[in-house]
């Protein structure tokens, strides 16, 4: 069978990605996770002496702790299948990437397994975050020192 004929059949039969449905699911679940995060923010501001500026750190840590529980009991994976980017984009998704890899590679030991593979999914986020932050800060520094903009 010719390539073109096959491509036509393949495209005809393969179900379309439900773009709108997927985006709506991502919106609602992502929004909900952020709302939970917001509630945690208030909790730390009201019950501990965190300010609006410093409250980010304990909030993120708490979200990752919750992510650990959900990941460990195999629930984050189900959430991911439903929500897609809705559960991958929040920081709990970053936690899930690290934690699921850590659990998975436990059988190869703690050094080569857990240690060596923990960041195999999330590592690229750190790489690109750091590199891009470096470039952005450098550009800004150059622009400031040449007097184009101010800090």
């Amino acid at each position: 069978m010719e390539q073109e004929k096959f491509d036509k059949i393949e495209q005809e039969i393969t179900p379309r990605t439900p773009y709108v449905k997927n985006v709506l699911k991502a919106f609602f679940v992502g929004g909900l996770i952020c709302t939970i995060g917001h509630a945690i923010t208030y909790f730390y501001i009201i019950f501990f002496d965190f300010t609006e500026k410093t409250v980010g750190n304990p909030t993120v840590a708490t979200m990752i702790f919750l992510s650990m529980l959900l990941t460990g009991f195999g629930l984050y994976q189900k959430l991911g299948q439903f929500a897609g980017a809705g559960s991958a984009v929040p920081v709990s998704g970053f936690g899930n990437a690290v934690i699921s890899a850590a659990i998975e590679h436990r059988t190869e030991g703690f050094v080569l397994g857990v240690g060596g593979n923990m960041f195999k999914l999330a590592g690229s986020v750190i790489l690109f975050g750091v590199t891009s932050a470096f470039v952005v800060a450098l550009v800004k520094l150059i622009l400031v020192s040449t007097g184009v903009i101010e800090w």
């Binding site: 929004g31 996770i33 709302t35 809705g86 984009v89």
Partner: peptide, 15 residues
């Protein structure tokens, strides 16, 4: 918090 967070995730889903 809900709307902005949701929108950022929706952008991720589009990607």
């Amino acid at each position: 918090a809900f709307i902005i967070g949701g929108l950022i995730c929706a952008i991720g889903q589009v990607l």
